[in-house]
Design a protein around this nucleic acid. Structure first.
Lengths: 138, 138
DNA sequence: TACTATCTCTATTGATTTAGTAGGGTTTGT
DNA sequence: ACAAACCCTACTAAATCAATAGAGATAGTA
């Protein structure tokens, strides 16, 4: 199963995407908004930074920002930073009949996860939220 | 990453598929042929039996057999017995923007893994093996 | 019946990974 | 100087994974 760390990373990036263009978000802002343990989030954001997806500003008024516009960042790119590989690869398993299936599964999965970008996700989340308001108000 | 247990299960089922129609294979035969720790394989075969994919005969001349013809058994069916779910599902995560992506990833993955049956795998393994013999003999 | 080869069940162990915490640092704006 | 932020290394507790142990049940056969 996909790890909690991965779902935290995705939620954090979604928050950064929503904020894109504004002033940087601090670890504590994101942690509070997304209900992620702050010290854990700190480690996750460091990983994302090392991968080049985010950058950070230290000191007062610092925080994290996306390096890439949300429309050019996919779920797959975030997942691959946080989650290791899901299927055995050629190096480990030469001459394995299952290898081709693993490769196909891997590339199919990549295609699905690379398909949706964070700009779209922000819109979809907005739609979900207004749906909710409507439902409550009935 | 896909578990060792899962790769053991697949190799065991492949051995049973290759043997389909013959006399049952014992845990020790499969364990030796596929280099799987026998007591671990025992537990795996029990899971497969409880799921209805294999059945077993106790006592002398006993062992395990496939319940289904190899041509009607897919990799996906075996993987699903051994591996839990890979993505969060609706029950846990209502109102999550990522949910639809997880559902799509799940069904795409299912399609890939359900595509290849064990009869085909046995043939492909035979082909791999004869390729090897040719390569060595050059 | 006794024997042996087989599967069956529950429990336990050791290693690894996951999830999270602690305690220091360093940088920057005021 | 101070406070607000990020940065780094290490640690711990819980869960899961991989494997093992020991005792039992079943079935064929001499």
């Amino acid at each position: 199963m996909i790890s909690k760390k991965c779902t935290y990373a995705l939620r954090a990036v979604l928050a950064l995407a929503r904020n894109h263009g504004g002033s940087p978000l601090t670890i504590h802002q994101i942690a509070k908004a997304e209900e992620i343990p702050p010290r854990f989030l700190e480690a996750i954001l460091r990983d994302l930074k090392q991968s080049g997806l985010t950058d950070s500003i230290r000191g007062k008024d610092g925080g994290y920002r996306l390096c890439v516009p949300p429309s050019e960042l996919s779920i797959g790119e975030v997942v691959r930073v946080v989650e290791g590989p899901w299927f055995p690869s050629e190096e480990e398993n030469k001459q394995d009949v299952f290898l081709k299936v693993w490769q196909e599964a891997d590339s199919t999965l990549k295609a699905v996860l690379d398909q949706k970008d964070f700009q779209t996700l922000v819109s979809e989340q907005d739609a979900l939220r207004t749906d909710n308001i409507i439902n409550y108000s009935i």
